[in-house]
């Protein structure tokens, strides 16, 4: 019974189950790492805010970033994640998926573009103290990750056809939902820190 299995551990069915576990564990590990990344930023936020060196955490007369603008970006990001998460949980990836997933993609692109626009129109200079530094760094890091996630979302949506990957590898598309949810959750925390706590 010397069957050459070519990198597959066992039969394709079992292989798919195993793949699902590998991808799911991998995504959770990635999220743990990413949590430490954002935790580093949150530490910087609280640390510099508490020190307030030279009274320059929030210098006098600083034009604060527009709270309404941040709210819109946050709502777009959260809706992206929720729409995709709901879509990825529909059994069989049927018509609901084909409706919701593109919607989430459009919302995601809008969130990225809107936030990107915001980054060019901050209303303050980056040299104006510590809060502008943290705002631009934290929001920028989040934006870069969101853009990467939306690029993969595009892949998932484009491959949602009958012979595409999204159906052939359902577990990958399922686990991906957690990444979007995570980024939305980070977005919520950032929003409260940068627009309210600060």
């Amino acid at each position: 019974m010397a069957v050459r299995t070519r990198g597959r551990d066992v039969s394709p069915g079992v292989e798919a189950l195993l793949d699902a576990r590998v991808v799911s564990v991998g995504v959770w590990l990635f999220l743990a790492a990413d949590l430490f990344f954002f935790a580093g930023w949150w530490f910087a936020f609280f640390y510099l805010r508490a020190l307030n060196n030279n009274q320059a955490w929030m210098i006098q007369g600083l034009v604060r970033p527009n709270r309404g603008f941040g709210t819109v970006v946050l709502i777009l990001a959260v809706l992206t994640a929720l729409a995709y998460f709901a879509a990825s949980r529909t059994p069989g990836r049927g018509s609901v998926f084909r409706l919701l997933a593109p919607v989430s993609l459009v919302l995601g692109i809008a969130a990225v573009l809107y936030q990107g626009y915001g980054m060019w129109h901050l209303g303050f200079g980056l040299t104006d103290g510590a809060y502008p530094s943290v705002f631009s760094g934290l929001t920028g890091s989040w934006l870069v990750q969101l853009a990467g996630a939306v690029a993969w979302l595009a892949t998932v949506v484009l491959q949602a056809g009958a012979r595409g990957d999204t159906l052939a590898r359902p577990h990958s598309a399922t686990s991906f939902g957690w990444i979007l949810l995570f980024l939305a959750a980070v977005g919520i925390i950032n929003y409260f820190l940068l627009y309210f706590v600060a």
Partner: peptide
């Protein structure tokens, strides 16, 4: 930016 410059916060 001024993450590490104490004069600037």
């Amino acid at each position: 930016t001024s993450f590490f410059l104490s004069a600037n916060g």
